[in-house]
Design a protein around this nucleic acid. Sequence first.
DNA 1: TTCATCAGATAAACCGGTTTACAAAGTAGC
DNA 2: GCTACTTTGTAAACCGGTTTATCTGATGAA
Lengths: 338, 338
Amino acid sequence: MKKKGPTIQDVANRAGLSKAAVSRYLNKSINLPEETGRKIDEAVKALGYRRNSIARRLSKGGSETIGLVVPEISNPFFSEMAEAVEQTASERGYNLILGISRNHPDKEIGFLRWIDDSIVDGLLFVTNRPGNRRLQLDIRRYRSVVLLDEDIPGTVQDKVFCQNVEGARDAVRYLIRTGHRRIFHVTGPVSLMSVKERLDGFRLAHEEAGLPCSDNHIFHHDYSQQFGRDVVRDILSRPALPDAVFAASDYIAIGMLEELKRNGVRVPDDMSIVGFDDTTLAGLVTPKLTTIRQSAAEMGRIGATRLLDALAQPGVLRGVTRIAASLVVRDSVLDRRE
Amino acid sequence: MKKKGPTIQDVANRAGLSKAAVSRYLNKSINLPEETGRKIDEAVKALGYRRNSIARRLSKGGSETIGLVVPEISNPFFSEMAEAVEQTASERGYNLILGISRNHPDKEIGFLRWIDDSIVDGLLFVTNRPGNRRLQLDIRRYRSVVLLDEDIPGTVQDKVFCQNVEGARDAVRYLIRTGHRRIFHVTGPVSLMSVKERLDGFRLAHEEAGLPCSDNHIFHHDYSQQFGRDVVRDILSRPALPDAVFAASDYIAIGMLEELKRNGVRVPDDMSIVGFDDTTLAGLVTPKLTTIRQSAAEMGRIGATRLLDALAQPGVLRGVTRIAASLVVRDSVLDRRE
DNA sequence: TTCATCAGATAAACCGGTTTACAAAGTAGC
DNA sequence: GCTACTTTGTAAACCGGTTTATCTGATGAA
């Protein structure tokens, strides 16, 4: 029942050589004459030798594994990201280990320890708790961490975000261009960089168009479907309805869609809605959601590439990379120009 | 820049003891007097010692990591499963490493090698290629593999599936009970166990009701949205439309919904639809999909528990576990009884 | 011939723990 | 006082590789 596989010593014995020769040959760190190489190859094949990766990690000090830490994986944005990261990692011979933080700072910090513990060589990190002081202080100690999607202020790592300002500005520009004048913004907590930046874009588009932009047209809470539903009740209780809403996430937009429907408000006839993210859900709801597309896959791919490059060649920081955010027109916005 | 953390030897030195004493104390495999224990604790704290998990794995022979292999992670069914697996694993001190096979048998077999390579102690395995001969032969060599969702014939591992027959039967019973008489079945490839079993349930419900059940009311291809769209064109080209369709996956059902809408066929007024899986998408589409709920999370949780139990106490096989599949009534079925 | 050089290969240290087998000191029982 | 445990602890082997420093014998140049 033991199934102890053959060790490198067994291979060496069979080939009539030393461990060192076999190891170096297998790692291509030595040039051996053809005949010798053949003997090793033969022994490896005959014994079915596979090197023990744990032992290898111990002596090399690396794990050939990277980690991805996300708040949740059942959110399509993160699962699309994970898919791309796994793809990129596996193309370069790395394994991917998954950490799900459920937004607990303790878990997040625990995942950082993976680096100390040589469980991973580096980490791709997404957090929704940028304000956590401990995390902030802690994360700076770690090189080989790449931040995705949301920033943690005061950190110096490589980072990959999307063009939040431009995306939001384009969304609102589009609403203005299609004749909307009273636009609300429903978004997440002010602590998040993406929220701040999308709000900047929202304001920018208003300024460009010479439109006023009141603070009480802005609703902060979180990027959830539930908030989308709740905010609708809030909005409907007000004297004047907006003719459009720019929601800073598809989840919010979808929650709103649902609740508006329940209240007999037709989208887009009575109210237009634009979302943000373009997860797979956006094309599935009715009406199909017009939204700003940011590719979670691209973010994952670029982040993983950055990280793997950094591991291969330490010391080279590339700073912040921005991926595109572009408008995808579907059915949730009505053209109101007469 | 080396950041070499303190080793157990450093702790031993500071506490004036031997490596062995420290190791055994830290692993609670020895009882030391309070005073000595305190000295070790002090040294650990003062030095900020964390044990090197790679070295530990090497000597213990285990990795305290399990793997989850799925065809894709961006499919909500699998990401919900992954979330539950990660949760269960982390509660028991295990890490989760993710393998995405993209349905390539080569990759699947590669992931099995993780066990040989001591990268994982065990594997949760979901495949859509049950027919692959090589995989079939190969997988039998591995204990500590648990099969989820789909079977691989001829294997002896622990397995967790859902009650496909009962679920499908209930779906069709419900359609019959609500007055439907001409029910089509749109499903995946015959090679999958789930497809066979759901078909059995489909037939069973017809028999019970004394209804005929023709083979050319059954459409096989795959569990994809695209097939849902395609099959609608096929069905609409036929002389007589069904009054209901039982789709063996939500993805198929959603694809059909979309294409039916495009063709002016109203759901559920002109045609009722029942899906299978109850992924998050089901509640989001219009009309909301009536479907059979199988909890991917529960499957993941139970599978992970089985695997971890098996690792803790080898040799005890529990065979096949079935999780519930139950009807969730939403808006895609019309009651046609006058 | 002789010294330098180099290809081919190895012994031994090392990575950082765990574990086995055993020693030394304390103490109980008689 | 002597034997028999118990307690407290350790030295050394081990896990399975990688890597460094070194050795040997052959080739080439002077």
